[in-house]
Amino acid sequence: MNRPYYFFVLPAVALVALMFLLPLGWLAALSFGLPEGFTLEHYEALAGSSGIRSMLWNTVRLVTITTLVSLVLGYLVAFAMAHLGETQRMLLTLFVLVPFWLSVLARALAWLILLRHNGLVNEALTGAGLIDRPLQLVRNELGVIIGMVHFLIPYAVFPLFAAMMTVDRRLVMAARSVGAVPWRAFIDVYVPVTLPAIFGAGVLVFIFGLGFFVTPAILGGGRVVMLSEYISVSVLQTLRWAQAGALSMVLLVSVIALVWLVARAIGFRRLTGVG
């Protein structure tokens, strides 16, 4: 009875399994020294290299800062969308959605135009007499964080907004009726109720941040090198396939572990927006 429907899903499954997952498995095998013989030397080399250790630490540190900033700003926008009435909600949704879809490359370029040494921000600040010499806003960690936060805010806004729309308004009213001032009701009732969504959105943002390539590569200007760019340099410039393979597996396993964590908490379908 259901037989024909297996043929419906077959092309997609075959396409992804053969052309995407299979080579991924091959890459994993390569990182363990296969097919010549199983070895952990490539992973030991990663752990032994202080350069790679500090690159990994920098990646995690920058992504953590980015995630926290994106969550706070995203929470603010989501809260406004949930509580400021229909017109503002529509406008805010539209304005969060449009940049969400704009080319990552075009956005990185725009940030470069804005934040460069003689860019628009520096010219405006010098023009206004606020600073004597241009600030270093790009080709450093600050530039990378600005670009990543800009990219990741929408990923935080939508899950938070969805959760806020389901908050039972009577909970806050109950808190108010027993004498809580609005501020306390917000901290003690509203935030804890939306905590699962904050967690979910945070992990989602963190996952995307870990895999970031374009924004750090352009706004970091070679001085701030994060994991993805390091992998690409390993392969495309220094041809260290085994090292790139091992680093890819570190990235892949971290992401899968985090996805599994959120999937356990909120469900895979909700995570990917299906159904």
Partner: peptide, 20 residues
């Protein structure tokens, strides 16, 4: 099926690119 079909969106782009 859904998990398989979603992997290209969820996994880090660089890793997929390298494998391909």
């Amino acid at each position: 099926t859904l998990v398989i079909a979603m992997t290209p969106m969820i996994l880090p782009p660089v890793v997929g690119a390298l494998a391909m």
